[in-house]
């Protein structure tokens, strides 16, 4: 019965965030290309791009939990849902989006702390269990507390915000707004991970035992990573509610959490850009491979298994893996 350390797999020593000028320049080109992409697309394409950004916020948060703190979270969709409902209920009551956004973020942060604290006190994989249970419970509350959440009927007619007097009602401005917010969030996370205070996260990822011996309070940092991850999902939820204009409990079920988790892992947990690859696979690729229909997800399931067997570091670890094979450093 080897309950070995339950942190996620490959732990090569890397800086918390990759940095180099060419990389930055390339990233900028990709971002600009993506920002201009919807100009050539119709409403649905734009909608998908916005949805991609929304999920990106959630998966970047999740990556902090999985990749850096080494914790399996099966409840990211619940936090997405909490954020979405807080924003939707507030905005339906006439409160502005920009008042609800921090509220959604704070609520998810606090709930993340409250959930993670007892679960992390005991054993590592218990956070996976606790978050799974939590997700199902949140789903039930959303569905049954009809007076507050609208139950299975959901909440209709959620408005989109306006920024400095400019309406973001139309699809294209809303996409740019969401994209800008996503980039801001990603930059914040990048800054956090690079700051002296945040380097502990990378230490935690690379070697928790060593980090502990160096005086990093593992439990506190793991908990913090989880709560920040939850907070990101809460923010994403607010954008989701506004994007779709309608919410009901369905998109916040356990299956959605599962897909986000698998997406991050397939992309490469603990790699700063892992969530980008993962979110492309779970949000954009199915659209592109529509001819595969239901076989797409089946193939995705197989890919997850194959990846765990042959490339547990995720798709982004492929170049390193090939390089190391050429040198012959690794078996």
């Amino acid at each position: 019965m080897n309950a070995s350390s339950s942190t996620v797999i490959a732990r090569p020593r890397r800086p918390a965030v990759p940095r180099s000028r060419t990389r930055l320049a390339l990233a900028a080109i990709v971002v600009i290309a993506f920002a201009l992409l919807p100009l050539g697309l119709k409403s649905y394409g734009t909608y998908l791009c916005s949805l991609f950004c929304v999920y990106l916020m959630a998966t970047f948060g999740l990556n902090l939990t999985i990749g850096y703190a080494g914790q399996m979270s099966l409840g990211q969709a619940a936090f997405l849902g909490i954020g979405a409902y807080i924003a939707a209920i507030g905005m339906k009551a006439g409160l502005p989006f920009f008042a609800m956004l921090p509220l959604a973020a704070l609520a998810c942060f606090a709930i993340g702390l409250a959930l993670g604290f007892p679960a992390l006190r005991v054993q590592h994989h218990y956070l996976a269990f606790a978050t799974l249970g939590f997700n199902v419970l949140v789903f039930l509350v959303l569905r049954n507390e009809e007076a507050i959440t609208g139950g299975t009927f959901g909440i209709r007619g959620i408005p989109r915000p306006s920024l400095f007097g400019l309406s973001l009602e139309r699809d294209l401005p809303y996409f740019w707004f969401t994209l800008a917010s996503t980039l801001l969030l990603i930059a914040l996370l990048g800054w956090l991970l690079r700051s002296p205070w945040g380097r502990a996260f990378a230490a935690l990822r690379d070697n928790p035992i060593r980090a502990e011996s160096l005086g990093v309070n593992i439990t506190a940092y793991t908990l913090l990573a989880f709560a920040i991850g939850a907070c990101c999902a809460g923010i994403a939820g607010a954008y989701f509610a506004s994007l779709v204009g309608f919410i009901d409990p369905a998109p916040f079920n356990f299956t959605a959490s599962l897909l986000m988790l698998l997406g991050v892992i397939v992309g490469g947990a603990g790699r700063f850009l892992g969530p980008v690859v993962g979110t492309v696979i779970i949000v954009l690729l199915p659209e592109w491979l529509r001819f595969m229909q239901n076989w797409y997800l089946a193939a995705f399931g197989v890919a997850v298994i194959a990846l765990m067997v042959w490339l547990p570091g995720g798709l982004l670890s492929l170049p390193e893996r090939l390089a190391s094979r050429r040198i012959g450093a690794l078996p």
């Binding site: 390339l26 990709v30 980008v276 954009l284």
Partner: peptide
């Protein structure tokens, strides 16, 4: 890095 190239190729392909 290659992932970025792949990603951008993919997105442009979609367009």
């Amino acid at each position: 890095m290659r992932s970025l190239v792949r990603l951008s190729a993919l997105l442009l392909g979609m367009a």
